[in-house]
Simulated assay, not measured.
Amino acid sequence: MGVATSGIAESPVAILIDDDAAVREALEELLNSVGIDTISFSSGQEVLDAELPDRPGCLVLDVRMPGLSGLDLQHLLATKGILTPIVFLTGHGDIAMSVQAMKAGAVDFLTKPVRDQTFLDAVSTAIANDVARRAASTVSRKNEALYETLTPREREVLRLVVSGAMNKQIASDLGISEITVKLHRSNMMKKMNARSISHLFNVWQSLPADVR
């Protein structure tokens, strides 16, 4: 397994999975030349057995390899909750494979030989997607922590507010006075650090589905 590091903890990393050592070395050299670290594996099983770095990045994955195919590995990674974006790079692709890979969430499906810039553009897009996904996940965890500080009644008020209910309707639905609704609403907005109803709605939308 080849590893190249730049010493920057959060620098992007491309995880290369290809059974052809010459291909891996060429891709490592190209990616390292533009400041992207690389980690290489020769099979899908090696990836599953490894502890992947918790850094922004992407996987560059061949389709046909001994043992697990690239499409099989894509599926197994998804079932494990590993959401690192995937760029397929293969010399044995066809339209059906491309469609299957893209439907399963691949960022791109490239066939060898490929222009260096086309490959780098695909990897850059995948890494940017991962950076955005990680940022959204950080916001979601932060907002979920705020949500946990709400009382059960404040959570009820929150759900009704984001559904568009007015104070009078909320009071009727919960069997409490409008003054009490206003108190709970004010406390809820402060705890959620919500500057406005539109901001509160965005915060609500960022929460995990099982919370909402």
Rank of each mutant, 00 (worst) to 15 (best):
T118R: 09
V123W: 01
I95D: 10
T138Y: 02
V87A: 02
D116C: 00
A96E: 06
D116Y: 01
P113A: 04
I82E: 02
D130W: 02
N129H: 08
A135W: 10
D62N: 14
T118A: 07
R115T: 00
F119K: 13
G70K: 10
L150R: 02
D130N: 09
R64D: 11
V139I: 10
R115C: 00
R141V: 08
Y147A: 02
D130E: 05
E154S: 10
N143M: 08
V123S: 04
E148D: 12
A135L: 15
E148H: 04
K80S: 05
T149N: 08
I82H: 00
V131G: 06
T84H: 02
V157I: 09
F109P: 03
A106M: 15
L76A: 07
A136W: 11
L71S: 05
F109N: 06
V139A: 08
R159P: 09
R133W: 00
S69L: 11
D130K: 02
V123T: 03
A128T: 09
I86Q: 03
L110I: 05
V107Q: 10
E144N: 08
A106R: 15
G93P: 05
V99H: 01
K142I: 03
L77I: 08
I127K: 07
A136R: 15
H75F: 06
A128V: 05
R134L: 13
N143F: 10
S140R: 11
V157P: 02
V131W: 10
Q117W: 01
L71C: 04
A126R: 10
L59V: 14
I95P: 01
Q100H: 10
H92G: 04
G93L: 04
A106H: 14
A136T: 14
E154L: 07
C58H: 08
L61D: 14
A132D: 07
L89T: 12
V139T: 08
L158D: 02
V60G: 06
V123D: 02
M102C: 10
L68E: 07
K112D: 09
L120S: 13
L110D: 06
A128R: 12
L150E: 00
G67S: 07
I127Y: 01
Q117L: 07
D116I: 00
L110A: 06
R141M: 12
T149Q: 11
V60Q: 10
H92P: 01
Q100T: 14
V63K: 01
S124G: 08
L73A: 04
L146Y: 00
V139G: 01
L110H: 07
L146V: 00
V87K: 03
A135E: 15
A136K: 15
P85C: 07
E156Q: 03
R133N: 05
G81K: 04
D72P: 00
A136E: 15
K80R: 15
L120G: 11
T84A: 06
L120A: 13
A122G: 09
R134C: 12
A122W: 08
A136N: 15
S124A: 12
N143H: 15
T125V: 12
P152R: 02
G67I: 09
L71G: 05
T125R: 13
D121G: 04
L77P: 04
L61G: 12
T79M: 09
D72Q: 10
D108W: 10
R133S: 05
K80N: 06
A136G: 15
L59N: 11
L89C: 12
V87G: 01
D94N: 14
L73W: 03
K112H: 07
D62Y: 09
V63L: 09
L89N: 14
G70E: 13
R141A: 15
A122N: 08
V161F: 02
P113V: 05
